[in-house]
């Protein structure tokens, strides 16, 4: 579904990504793992066009994303939930959700909101509230719900577990798994928390200093003790 080839990008003289290639298969969760500064976030930012690559390409179901502006990504079916939640705290919960549906050029229908609220009951109780009163976990639910309202084919999730209690992390990961099974969504999951990520992922890509160290089935990565110690920290 999403195919990354020889992707190279950086900030000024610093090369953050160096010839990264991998495929994210349709209806699967692909975990992108690695230490801080390995280039995980830059990878997602380059896929969604926030950072322009100096070399390489990204294609979504055959469409070259290099020609699509950032503002056009939602319309071609790519949703990117950036690190640090990306909730617009000055807006209400409902306004954040409406914004998600506007991205695909549509209006948010009653059915859309109902689905969002059934997946995330907590949002239904607080839809009129300003988003800045939400807890970290609730914010993560809101941005995922908002991304889903654009009806994406590929969802890029950047560190959804960051700063959340373990119980909430489990809840959010289970939810991502449910979405993949129910909708055939393709997910690229960037995570520091490698153990949790590999427990729900189909495949994993390990980055170090902007390069792919290894790319394999999630179970194989989790079973490789040397790799776990060297790059995954568990």
């Amino acid at each position: 579904m999403l195919s990354v080839r020889d992707l190279t990008a950086g900030y000024g003289a610093v090369t953050a990504l160096d010839g990264v290639s991998f495929d994210a298969a349709e209806g699967e969760i692909t975990a992108v793992l690695g230490a801080n500064g390995a280039g995980k976030s830059t990878l997602l930012r380059t896929i969604s066009g926030l950072v322009r690559p100096s070399r390489g390409s990204v294609t979504l179901a055959g469409l070259d994303l290099g020609t699509v502006p950032v503002e056009g990504m939602a319309a071609v079916g790519l949703a990117h939930v950036p690190e640090g939640r990306g909730v617009i705290t000055e807006l209400t919960v409902e306004e954040n959700l409406r914004l998600g549906a506007l991205g695909r050029g549509g209006r948010v229908g009653a059915a859309d909101l109902e689905r969002a609220y059934s997946l995330f009951p907590i949002l239904a109780q607080r839809y009129r509230a300003s988003a800045h009163v939400l807890s970290g976990g609730e914010r993560q639910m809101l941005v995922i719900a908002r991304a889903l309202l654009a009806r994406p084919r590929v969802l890029l999730l950047d560190e959804p577990s960051l700063g959340l209690a373990p119980r909430i992390v489990v809840q959010i990961f289970e939810l991502v798994q449910t979405l993949v099974r129910a909708d055939g969504l393709t997910v690229v999951l960037v995570e520091q928390n490698a153990r949790s990520a590999l427990s729900i992922a189909n495949r994993g890509v390990v980055l170090n200093l902007g390069r792919v160290v290894v790319s394999d089935e999630a179970a194989a990565l989790a079973g490789n003790e040397r790799l776990r110690h060297a790059y995954l920290g568990f």
């Binding site: 939602a74 949703a79 990306g86």
Partner: peptide
């Protein structure tokens, strides 16, 4: 940035 990612 978030607005752009949402297609605005």
């Amino acid at each position: 940035e978030v607005a752009r990612l949402l297609g605005v």
